[in-house]
Design a protein around this nucleic acid. Sequence first.
DNA 1: AAAACCACCAACCGCGATGGC
DNA 2: TGCCATCGCGGTTGGTGGTTT
Length: 250
Amino acid sequence: MGRSPCCEKAHTNKGAWTKEEDDRLRAYIRAHGEGCWRSLPKAAGLLRCGKSCRLRWINYLRPDLKRGNFTEEEDELIIKLHSLLGNKWSLIAGRLPGRTDNEIKNYWNTHIRRKLLNRGVDPATHRPINEATQSQEAPTISFAASSVKQEENNDNTSGFGEKDSKIHVQERCPDLNLELRISPPYQNQPDELKSGGGSPLCFACSLGLQNSKDCSCGIGNIGSTSSSNTGYDILGLKRVVLDYRRLEMK
DNA sequence: AAAACCACCAACCGCGATGGC
DNA sequence: TGCCATCGCGGTTGGTGGTTT
């Protein structure tokens, strides 16, 4: 049995959204909130499928979106995150305030790929292109404790779309915890966290490896709650955007 | 000036995950 | 436990505007 269509296609518009459609969708979500995309088009008086409405809202109409060019810092952050997460655009977008997965995906394919190629780096593996044909050893990032915990943590790295990225993430950061954390929006965090106060984290802690013996800042030895108190996240970023928007709609 | 080509990005499509019944 | 509806994600496509020939 085939999958049923997501909506009745006979009476739905396709293609570019008009201003009137945008206004209707925006007004409806302002009044009723996100959620139940299936029934939204009818309720909002839109001849669109729910899927299309959701995409339009998430990628274009959401008020917290940051439009405009990517900064150099964002470029580098995307590259770092991609080297760790692979083509997990939604996860990468979760670390970039105001950016959508679609936007980042497009930006990667049009700008960053070329940028990396110009640097002589393979955008798929993040290794020097020359090295691609050489030995598969010499991972980019290594940890002393990697071999110990590799088996325990294989579950945390499952689900990567690209086989290559899965392999390389495991090689480079075998005990890297890639689980998403739900945390309050940045603006709701204590002042000392906003201002970057507190002890600086070592690289191991910034990667979520508080229990690693590679921890050199001492935070990993304070206790299991230390990481949640730092306000920092993978790559040493402050937790910023991964807020409860998506949870609230349920 | 016009055609061909290129780059960008919004939108679509298909599929896996999830939750309710 | 299995089925179904729905959501969300990642890959891909197609339209549009800019640039080059």
